[in-house]
């Protein structure tokens, strides 16, 4: 049975429809890529799953239907979310950002703590006390992922991890993603840069004009 199951998902902003009947699933330990041109509805799909925008459809995480849950309840079930625009708390330091994401470890999954995320994203270790506002885009991106990992998620929705990053950082990001996969975290990753995630992904979907098909 899939860990995350999405059936007939429709969503939009106000009366602008963005998603029409999206169907996808994510198995335990799987890395699945969602590709498509910008404006196609990738980010909207992730936000809709996370309960951050109004949506309709049948959504399940494990055995739990997500339809009526609030975002914080969905997060507590073990579904992490890393937004495209990072949304670091800019007034908070790196360590404080991590603290916001911290949750109790989940049985059967390796527990993430500061030391472990710093091992994954080495540059962050050197700037524990730096406020989010004074970090580069790439550093913020790492922090956004690290912050979500602190919640010990079973699955992560990862929106455009490589967007706007220098090639070197993209490589670091790819290594981090591989490490996540080894740790048994399921990942649904949106990516425009198909080369980036293709090597890691077990499967891929293509989203076009608000509908999804397997690649």
């Amino acid at each position: 049975m899939a860990l995350l199951e999405v059936r007939g998902l429709s969503a939009g902003y106000g009366r602008a429809r963005v998603l029409f009947d999206v169907e996808l699933e994510l198995g335990a330990g799987e890395v699945v890529m969602l590709t498509g041109r910008n404006g196609a509805g990738k980010s909207t799909t992730l936000k809709a799953i996370m309960g951050l925008i109004a949506r309709e459809g049948d959504l399940r995480f494990g055995a739990t239907p997500l339809g009526r849950l609030e975002a914080f309840e969905i997060a507590r079930l073990g579904l992490g979310y890393v937004p495209e625009d990072r949304r670091i708390f800019t007034a908070l330091t790196v360590a404080e950002n991590l603290q916001v994401g911290r949750r109790a470890p989940r049985p059967g999954l390796p527990a993430w703590d500061e030391a472990r995320v710093f091992a994954l994203f080495a540059p962050l270790a050197a700037m524990k006390e730096r406020p989010g506002a004074r970090m580069s885009g790439g550093e913020q991106k790492m922090l956004a992922i690290a912050r979500t990992l602190m919640g010990n998620p079973r699955a992560v929705l990862l929106d455009e991890p490589s967007e706007g990053l220098a090639p070197l950082v993209v490589r670091q990001m790819a290594a981090a993603l591989a490490e996540l996969k080894r740790a048994g975290v399921s990942v649904l990753v949106c990516e425009q840069n198909a080369q980036f995630a293709a090597r890691l992904a077990d499967r891929a979907y293509v989203i076009e004009r608000g509908t999804v098909r397997p690649a």
């Binding site: 975002a71 800019t90 949750r103």
Partner: peptide, 24 residues
């Protein structure tokens, strides 16, 4: 304090704090 950190986080971006599991 952690509570204070959560307050400041929610002040800056309520929605993102919720997406990280913070019960508002």
């Amino acid at each position: 304090t952690r509570w204070g950190t959560l307050v400041r986080a929610a002040t800056e971006d309520r929605e993102m704090a919720a997406a990280l599991g913070v019960n508002q």
